[in-house]
Design a protein around this nucleic acid. Structure first.
Lengths: 237, 237
DNA sequence: GAGTCGCCTTGATCGAGATCAAGGTTTTGC
DNA sequence: GCAAAACCTTGATCTCGATCAAGGCGACTC
């Protein structure tokens, strides 16, 4: 675990140009003085797909890539309880009662800061505290949305909802009526573990959506949709 | 809807003696000056079982009773995405993308404050902001826990997990080896909507646990367990 | 007390999705 | 390029939980 590789290139300051430039994730919230302080304490990492991201007392901006969060039952059954897509913000303060593991699904670039610094800044800066709270509430909404899917949707609605989620994260501003194509950053096993299904069912439902004409399977990992609206109809909500 | 009844008794100040006395929920966090300010702006309500609690721009301490949170699919399928047991803290800032409804399952007593006051206090008082964040993270952990149950547990594991949850909320400090009995504040329909099952399956699994000797069904709404540990074994995690 | 209504239980049957099995395709390593 | 491994698809069959159906029990009304 934790095969993190430091990639401290001289020309990329630690709280990285990418962070500052994007003004998204958490970094847009800081002023110049704070960015300077963070720069000293932060570091940029790149980790290959499959790496577990240990809870090492940091927060990170996810600059690129996709991360999954999983909960396991004692006999090995696995449930994916969330994803992080760039430019999300990762890491959590306070101890969780039951462990949740984070793992990179694709190659991932992170910019991490010690939690203590952010926590101190949040004390001085109510907007930052609000932002953290808002962020957490969004995660909560998403989790509850997927609870409804897990508990009450059929297999084909689950698969459609999943595709819609990935499409939205690929291009949040996409026009609902125009076609879109995207890579699935997950194996069929991961999709199944997210949707509470088996890989066979996921495969069958994807094939069904293809023969319907709802999706085109360019290759195993790349999907294209005629429109977001069309897949949305099949989500059940 | 929203048949809230104000119960402003002269001898119960609005930020109520019960709140102050308990030092739990959110109220333990405030100092005397803040409590005085809150007292002016807050009010105590009691609502009967079955009432919907509208999102009216307040936070509330739940003094007694149980509240369910639900998400509905377009065709009426329902999923319960969370419960609040006394002395939880209810209400959320920021707008949710998809609506979640809150409904009293039992008669409920609430002490509510306008959100604006709490938000202002959170700005002045980082510990309060932290407390709100911690609270939200706990809800997130719980939601993720139930995602794992919904996606990967069998019907009997789900029912066992549910009973354990109610038992724990009834008496958080209960010794794991000693017997415990408690009321189910839910109908079979609600249990089913929480666990992603049908009422028939819930009923059958309860009957099965009874004939196992794991539980005793005193009456439809009252259960007793030989021990928490015994039911814990059947939860799959 | 009889009737009605809401809620729960139990039995019989059905079906969506799991499991078992086989083969195909893509990736990786030499 | 070839072999091995990993991943994916499709078919056949099975099973868990859903659905359909009937009846029980308690609370409330008249």
């Amino acid at each position: 675990m934790a095969a993190r590789q430091d990639v401290q290139q001289a020309d990329v300051p630690a709280i990285c140009k990418s962070c500052e430039a994007r003004q998204d994730g958490l970094c847009g919230a800081f002023n110049a003085r704070q960015l300077a302080e963070l720069a000293k304490a932060s570091s940029r990492h790149e980790v290959p797909a499959g790496t577990e991201l240990p809870d090492d007392g940091t927060y990170s901006n996810l600059l690129s890539g996709v991360v999954k969060l999983t909960r396991n039952l004692s006999d090995g059954r696995q449930q994916i309880v969330g994803f992080h897509f760039a430019p999300d913000f990762l890491g959590r303060p306070f101890e969780a009662k039951k462990p949740i593991r984070a793992e990179a699904l694709t190659n991932v670039a992170l910019c991490s800061f010690p939690r203590a610094i952010i926590d101190r800044m949040a004390n001085e800066m109510p907007e930052l505290a609000r932002l953290l709270l808002k962020h957490t509430l969004n995660e909560l909404d998403e989790a509850r949305d997927w609870m409804a899917a897990l508990g009450r949707k059929t297999a084909s609605e689950k698969v459609a909802s999943f595709l819609l989620m990935v499409a939205r994260n690929t291009d949040p501003a996409h026009h609902p009526a125009s076609p879109i194509s995207f890579d699935l950053p997950l194996t069929r096993t991961d999709i199944a573990d997210f949707l509470g299904l088996t890989i066979e069912t996921v495969s069958r439902e994807l094939s069904r959506l293809r023969s319907d004409g709802t999706i085109r399977i360019v290759n195993k990992r790349q999907i294209s949709l005629a429109s977001m609206a069309q897949i949305e109809e099949r989500c059940g909500d």
